[in-house]
Computed example of a mutant assay.
Amino acid sequence: MTQPRQQHSDPQPDAAHSASRWEERYASVEQLWSGRPNDWLPELATDWSPGTALEIGCGEGADVLWLAERGWRVIGLDLSATAIGRLTRQAERLGISSRVTGRVHDAGDGLPAGPFDLVTSFYVHGGTEPGSLDLVALLSDAAARV
């Protein structure tokens, strides 16, 4: 099994620092994103039969909510407790909270076991900088959950 977090001997920002940055970003505004699902999701998945889904880096949950409104059971992962709180409240307002699970979670710590019928990750951040998520490893791990 591959490890999503890169290992470096240089000093690196830890997960708590990254989570803190995202938490500050979400907490600084009432709504950070548009509230609409990523354009690719409806384009690709409108006709798919509902099943179980995992959304990595779900933010305030527009993709999670879109899927759940169509009958999917969805787990949304994000570093920000504020973002997950917004997802959870919106799922309750829409009457779909029984199909939505929001988790404050660092994808670099691994992913839920699955299996899932669909795994999405439109906006997870990573890169080559020390402490960043290894996106190739993360997406390979995500694909193994399907």
Rank of each mutant, 00 (worst) to 15 (best):
D63K: 05
D117E: 08
R73G: 03
S80I: 11
G126H: 14
G35L: 00
R145Q: 12
Y123L: 15
S97G: 07
A15W: 03
Q7E: 04
P4A: 01
I75D: 07
S121A: 14
S49I: 01
E60F: 11
V104C: 03
H125F: 07
L54C: 06
C58I: 13
A15K: 11
E92Q: 12
D134T: 00
E30V: 02
A27R: 14
L41I: 14
Q31S: 12
G126Y: 13
P11K: 06
L67N: 02
P11E: 08
V64Q: 02
Y26A: 10
A16G: 11
N38H: 15
Q90N: 15
D10A: 10
P4Y: 00
Q7D: 05
P50L: 08
W33H: 15
W40E: 09
T101N: 06
A27D: 15
P13K: 05
Q3M: 07
F122T: 14
P130G: 07
D63F: 00
E30M: 09
P13D: 11
A62T: 06
D141V: 13
T88E: 12
Q3N: 07
R99T: 10
A81H: 09
H8E: 04
G131T: 00
D106K: 03
H17N: 12
E69K: 04
I84V: 15
P42W: 02
A19I: 00
T46C: 05
R93N: 12
L94D: 14
S98Y: 14
N38D: 15
H105Q: 12
F122E: 15
I75C: 02
